[in-house]
Computed example of a mutant assay.
Amino acid sequence: MSTTYAVRDSVTMLRRNLRHLSRYPSLALMLIAIPVVFLLLFVYVFGGTLGAGLPVDGGGGRADYLNYLVPGIWIMTVASVANGTAVAVAIDRTGGMFDRFRTMDIAQVSVLTGHVLGAVIRTLLALTVMVGFALLLGFRSAAGVAGWFGVAGLVLLLAFSFTWLTVAMGLAAGSIETASNTPLVLMVLPFVSSGFVPTEQMPPGLRHFAEHQPFTPVIETLRALTSGAPVGSDGWTAVVWCVAIGLAGYVWSRRELTAVGRRGR
């Protein structure tokens, strides 16, 4: 099937996913609610204490901790939407939608592409809400136009990459419950990164893991972009991680899609 037909079919599947979003707004609200709760919890319950430990002159306060925390919350927003995508894929698979699509004259990968593109759009909407909410709480950024374009580009690259990974998880899951639990690791990893506390304050073994896992260079890059500081090597490391995870997720998804087709015959 030609690339033109694949693109056309992917757009059709994207429209299908957007219709689901409009018909079930409560699902989108739940995906946004989780990062909002964490933002409020860490700023207003732990922010005073955690902010005092930040490496700033004279120690930090709640306002300093808010600026430090926001990039990590954005990452959790991406992970939350990606988690919902795994569930949506599992619903399609267990509900027989993949069997129906297989009988149609469409590019089979477009079914997955529609989920991925829909998730990226949901991520963009959720992050817009989160940025506005953070600004209302007092978040301030020294980033210029180029810096904000860099933030948007990196976050969308991360969303695209991790969504392909969770699509594969949804296909590989044997049930909807499994699909909802497997991607939870993406919600846990930000806690073991520089998203909530500086890695320098962690024990040596945990610090080594935190500094070399995918989320830390992404968070550090976002933090540098929003503060107007030099990005350094973290920027390239973040991009490499995103590309590697996205490629692995895509290959895994195609393999699982082929396996689903074989089992359906």
Rank of each mutant, 00 (worst) to 15 (best):
V240R: 11
W252C: 06
R207Y: 07
G246Y: 02
L247S: 13
T226Y: 02
I245R: 02
W241Y: 13
G249M: 09
V240H: 08
R254H: 12
T216M: 02
V218W: 05
L206M: 08
E256Y: 11
P217W: 09
A229K: 14
L206Q: 04
A244W: 08
V231F: 08
E211Y: 01
R223W: 12
G232N: 08
V231C: 10
D234S: 14
V218L: 14
W236D: 10
Y250Q: 09
P217H: 04
P217M: 10
S253C: 07
S227C: 04
G205A: 15
T216R: 04
F215R: 06
Q213G: 00
R254E: 14
V240A: 13
T216C: 01
T237Q: 10
V218K: 01
T226P: 07
P214G: 05
E220L: 12
Q213C: 03
T221K: 09
A244F: 04
R254L: 15
S233G: 07
L225C: 10
H208K: 12
L225E: 01
P230N: 03
C242K: 05
T216Q: 02
E211Q: 05
S227W: 07
V240C: 03
T221A: 06
L222E: 03
I219M: 10
E256M: 12
G246N: 07
A244K: 09
W241S: 05
I219A: 01
T216S: 12
W236P: 00
C242Y: 02
R223Q: 11
T237D: 04
E211H: 01
C242I: 04
T237K: 13
Q213M: 03
Y250K: 02
P214M: 05
G246I: 00
V239S: 02
E256K: 10
D234L: 04
V231R: 08
